[in-house]
Design a protein around this nucleic acid. Structure first.
Length: 901
RNA sequence: GGUCUUUUAGCUCAGUUGGCUAGAGCACUACCUUGACAUGGUAGGGGUCACAGGUUCGAGUCCUGUAAAGACCACCA
């Protein structure tokens, strides 16, 4: 049949159609294509924010997962890539709060039920967008199993886990100093606080003694908190202040008297050695306060404004107040000046607002017992990190982990399944909504108004998505999952907590391997982010479009998901960050186009010359009519081996490079060029070459498929059509991953071809050197000790070297006016017809002579070293000697040639 | 303050257990519009492997130190 394939591959025209066929034919379903005797292989997707938009980090993360799952699926494993999305509590709630504000409304004004209705509406409206975007990327998730962290089933899992932890005494309610975000008005966990180094002031304040016998100076970065001071601490061993312990000082403005206390917390070496104690607003001071029974005076409210304790500053924003307080204290001589300092200030990782330490009552998870088991899993090698250095980071965090504050004072999330009894004050924790107090039977109970930290539900993800707490068939079949692919940023938030909850509730690790990939950076090395405007939109790279990047606009016609995936894989080296720029994706685009065109060449030939039978292993072997064919099939085995090993080791760049090398160098540059001669010859020779090429091409499509699924599937369908099958009857994505075939291995083929390639390259080199075009045939005289062997490949040499005549003989004389190249034990003489620029040749040869001389003297020195000869492995010494002989021969030739020019 | 990572060609990066002339892609130079592909081909130029010591017959690779860049952790007034 006639084939009219476009010269340039247009991914945007191919990919949507291919994806749709996969999806409608159930190729993504759990277990699709599985073969008996293979274990399950599961990946639980790191659930993206349900209202989020795909960014390059997602593209990388999901490319790596898809590559693994496609590879394992082809290997015949019972695979499941479990997709879903996360409700992302604070992040989503704050988006909707803003939307509501734009309508002139407030969250509290709307009330909880109405506000939540709006969040759900926003989730319905924008949710699914990111899931569609993952499809564009080619993600082969089982979409029929898509889950959302606030689904009924997952919510039940959350409640069950909460109850089990509570019953085990691992969840408790306590009054503690926690990190408070005044913008979101909620408590945050310790690891949700980002410490940022900021420029600040250290102010000196003078507090006068009650008896006016003197004063004491304290230093603070937070002068506005002095209203909450309930003591001044000095070190009991500090002689300067010993006499003052027990006396009282008068706070400025408000005149309240506070004691001077002795406490180890005061460091004589720091500042004045005396420190103001504000137990309600500083974690250290809180501890000091507890030791000395100091009152807690809250001067900053939960909304970040000053309370009535702050006298006439009440109602002011904390930062406005700071300035005003400083001004007033300076005027009254209390503020004695300030110094500039750099200090780290905690910020909410969600709102970016500086956090306040606040004493509140919250729910906590007791971490130590959970952490201990989680730690064991990595220490005893049951959960492996790749690269393994992250196991250390994980271990360190688990070793000094502090209790996890899990209650959030927001509305969007899993409401805490605990009810407080008005009668007895005790808590009833239940999976089903409670109606009576478990302790006293009172019906006067009320559910806790807080919701759980988003990470609480994420921590259950690998098994809650499979139906836990029910003992579902899926849970039995796919849990524990196999590989977790994620970013180093959430090792603590997510990875560690999954291991902890899983060990606790299921007594099983949640996954065996954790692959931590690098971070996506822009071309300057900065993290990509919306606010910096340095993000590269994956959808623009895939489907085309215009976007701003680093202040400039760029347009991409749409390189396709395959191109982007290939580039990402190529750049994914163990644990390294990826410095990207839009032009990086040309690498993938170019390679995709190369694959397309090689396919086009094959398909066109097949359409003109149909194969007698489809290419199979046995036929390919039988069709291996010549050495180049034998060699190609041998190389293919090497590529299969390399790709498989690379993927087993999570070496994505090795996988991409091995496939690339084989495809471009071996298949295209050497074999396809040679096959053109076979095709020209026609008949059985052409048939045989086409069979071998079709076979090798089909195999390499399989190798490339996990990385470049669309293009390979597309070409494979054409190939089916041209080799006796029917397009879209079957799918490449469900074909078997290639295994090496021992009968297609050929010992020595690599060396034999390498020698031929070296001869051909040396001829081309000489031609280039003397300024002859590639199309100009030259004669060659090869002096070969094993002339008879080399003569068998004479046709290949003649064709690939574009030789007008080829003489191969042992000990043949060097023709006059010829340039000689030494290739191992061979001498390749190219007689020059006198049309050449001899000075150019001379310069080249002289250069070569210098390189040789240097190498020879190095080897002579080495061999002259008795220690080397005695201690280095014998084969190595022998090899050095051999090389020395050949280099000396070549140098002689170079000199001889130079003499004749 | 602590832990970790990085430093190899103009740029982005490979370089497994130490081994012979250190590789790739992009960029660069010359030639080639040849029947798969100019998003291409052929050939080529370009590196004292951050620096200083050490171990070794032999170091990009191992050890010690220095410098620079980056990431994370930490309650520092």
């Amino acid at each position: 049949m006639p084939l009219d394939l476009p010269k340039a591959y247009d991914a945007t025209a191919v990919e949507p159609d291919v994806y749709q066929r996969w999806e409608t034919n159930g190729c993504f379903k759990a277990g699709a294509g599985k073969r008996a005797g293979k274990p399950s292989y599961t990946i639980a997707i790191p659930p993206p924010n349900v209202t989020g938009v795909l960014h390059m980090g997602h593209a990388l993360n999901n490319t790596l997962q898809d590559t693994l799952i496609r590879w394992r699926r082809m290997q015949g494993h019972d695979t499941l890539w479990q997709p879903g999305t996360d409700h992302a509590g604070i992040a989503t709630e704050s988006v909707v709060v803003k939307q509501v504000q734009e309508q002139g409304l407030t969250r509290d004004g709307l009330g909880r039920p109405e506000f939540l209705k709006r969040v759900w509406a926003w989730k319905e409206q924008s949710g699914g967008k990111i899931v569609q975007q993952l499809r564009k990327l080619g993600a082969s998730c089982d979409w029929s199993r898509e889950r959302f962290t606030m689904d009924e089933g997952l919510s039940r899992a959350v409640r069950t886990m909460f109850k089990r932890l509570y019953d085990a005494g691992l969840i408790y309610r306590g009054t503690r100093m926690v990190n408070w975000c005044p913008v979101q008005k909620t408590a945050l966990a310790d690891d949700e606080v980002e410490h940022i180094e900021k420029n600040g002031h250290l102010w000196k304040l003078r507090y006068d003694l009650e008896d006016n016998s003197g004063s004491i100076v304290v230093e603070t970065t937070r002068p506005e908190t002095f209203f909450g001071d309930t003591a001044v601490a000095v070190n009991p061993a500090d002689e300067r202040y010993q006499a003052m312990i027990g006396k009282r000082v008068r706070l400025p403005i408000i005149g309240r008297l506070i004691p001077i206390i002795g406490d180890e917390h005061a460091d004589p070496a720091k500042g004045s050695g005396a420190v103001k104690i504000t137990p309600a607003h500083d974690p250290n001071d809180y501890e000091v306060g507890k030791r000395h029974n100091l009152p807690l005076i809250q001067v900053i409210g939960f909304d970040g404004t000053m309370t009535t304790e702050a006298a006439h500053f009440a109602g002011q924003d904390r930062f406005v107040c700071r300035k005003a307080v400083c001004a007033e204290l300076e005027a009254s001589g209390v503020l004695l000046g300030s110094t500039q300092i750099m200090h780290s200030v905690g910020h909410s990782y969600r709102s970016n607002a500086p956090i306040e330490a606040m004493v509140t009552e919250q729910w906590f998870v007791k971490m130590a017992p959970l952490a201990e088991r989680a730690l064991k899993e990595t220490q005893e090698g049951r959960v492996l990190f790749h690269p393994d250095r992250w196991a250390k980071v994980y271990g360190q965090w688990l070793t000094d982990v502090r209790d996890w504050c899990i209650s959030r004072q927001i509305w969007w999330g899993h409401r805490i399944p605990a009810w407080t009894c008005a009668a007895c004050g005790k808590h009833t924790v239940a999976i089903e909504d409670a109606t009576v107090c478990q302790h006293c039977g009172s019906k006067d109970i009320i559910q806790d108004s807080d919701v759980l930290d988003t990470w609480f539900s994420s921590a259950l993800w690998p098994y809650s998505t499979l139906g836990w707490p029910e003992q579902t068939p899926e849970l039995a079949r796919y849990f524990p999952t196999s590989t977790l692919v994620t970013d180093r940023g959430i090792i603590f938030f997510w990875v560690a907590r999954m291991v902890m909850t899983s060990m606790f509730a299921l007594d099983k690790k949640p996954f065996s391997d954790v692959y931590i990939h690098g971070t996506v950076l822009d071309e300057r090395g900065d993290k990509m982010s919306k606010s910096k405007g340095n993000g590269i939109d994956p959808l623009v790279m895939i489907s085309g479009g215009t976007q701003k990047y680093l202040g400039k606009e760029f347009t991409c016609p749409g390189y396709g998901a395959d191109a982007m995936r290939y580039t990402l894989l190529d750049m994914t080296t163990e644990g390294q960050d990826l410095k990207l720029s839009p032009s990086k994706f040309e690498t993938g685009r170019n390679f995709a186009n190369k694959v397309w065109n090689a396919g086009r060449f094959l398909l066109t030939n097949l359409s003109e010359r149909p194969l007698a039978a489809p290419p199979t292993d046995a036929q390919a072997l039988a069709a291996a009519i010549g050495f180049p064919e034998v060699w190609l099939l041998d190389r293919l085995q090497g590529a299969i081996d390399e790709c498989t090993t690379a993927l087993e080791r999570f070496r994505y760049n090795d996988y991409a490079n091995s496939a690339y090398r084989f495809f471009r160098d071996d298949l295209c540059d050497w074999y396809v060029e040679w096959a053109k001669r076979r095709f020209k010859a026609g008949g059985a020779e052409a048939q045989a070459a086409a069979t071998v090429l079709a076979y090798a091409f089909e195999r390499v499509l399989r190798l490339l498929h996990p990385g470049m699924p669309f293009l390979t599937e597309h070409l494979w369908q054409y190939l089916q059509d041209q080799t006796g099958g029917k397009a879209w009857d079957q799918f490449l994505m469900l074909q078997a991953w290639p295994e090496t075939v021992s009968t297609l291995r050929s010992a020595g083929a690599g060396e034999r071809m390498a020698r031929l390639q070296a001869v051909v390259t040396s001829v081309r080199n000489v031609r280039n050197l003397v300024g002859l075009a590639d199309g100009v045939a030259v004669a060659a005289v090869v002096d070969a000790p094993d002339a008879a062997t080399l003569q068998m490949d004479g046709e290949f040499l003649t064709d690939r070297g574009n030789l007008s005549a080829l003489t191969i003989a042992s000990g043949v004389a060097k023709p006059p006016q010829s340039v000689t190249t030494v290739v191992g034990a061979l001498k390749v003489h190219i007689p020059l017809s006198g049309l050449v620029d001899l000075t150019k040749v001379k310069v080249q040869l002289e250069k070569r002579g210098q390189v040789l001389a240097k190498s020879i003297s190095g080897k002579e020195a080495r061999l002259g070293n008795a220690d080397y000869v005695a201690r280095a492995p014998a084969e190595q010494v022998a090899e050095t000697k051999l090389l020395l002989v050949s280099e000396r021969a070549e140098l002689t030739n170079v000199n001889e040639t130079l003499a004749t020019l």
